[in-house]
Amino acid sequence: MNSVSSFRKQGKNFFQRLDPRVKIITFTVFILFIGLTPPGDFYKFLAYLFLLGVFFTLSSVPFKRWVSRLALIFPLLAFIGLSVILFKQDPQWTRGEILWNLGVKTVLIFMSVLLLVLSTGFYRLVKGLELLKVPSLVISVVTFAYRYSFLLSQEAESMRKAKLSRSFGRRKKTQEVKTLMHMVPHLFFRTFERSERIYAAMLSRGFDRKVKTLILFRMKTEDWIFGFLFFLALGLIRGML
């Protein structure tokens, strides 16, 4: 898990230390801008990419780390591409135009979300959402999904090792698929049971679904300056390009 997520760590530099509320609001607006930009405005997309590049540099997130996370988007892009190729019906747009529109926006939005999460830390982000009065049910769902994803990968690794220990050489693809189909529901069941035990442990230590940290979130001058400059940059991109 991200060490920036710690209850007390403020972050290594000014970008990481920005108030999570400022980052959530600015990035949400940024994502809306990306989504609403007409597909033909190529230079705007380039400007958004440049802005993201600047923020990635300021964030000091290791390059290797965000590239490895970025690779997660390829299955999604493949799915989008396949859907467009197979099911495109709108006569107003060509397949190429739709693919470009969806593809570039998906990549930019994904990069924005990635930057937000990697440079803020999960618990600071969730605390920011709580301070912005996002409903507690939404926050609970987000935090539990986050914890569940780690449990799922741990249990999957454990099952993978157990399977390998009883596998001898290559098997037929059909056999592998059949085994996998049996393992997947079992994986979810095991993860669910473990998540129940962890939840019991959390309740036993007074957990009441609220996010508690040692950091006091107060808007500082640098937060206001960042917000102002960010919206100025967006305004310039929109106005000039």
Binding site: N2, F7, R8, R197, A201, M202, F207
Partner: peptide, 20 residues
């Protein structure tokens, strides 16, 4: 492993105190 679910040891030990 069911009781330790935070990023650091400090966070895990502090968890209950913060909730209180």
């Amino acid at each position: 492993n069911d009781q330790l679910f935070m990023p650091t040891v400090f966070d895990d030990v502090a968890f209950g105190l913060l909730n209180l």
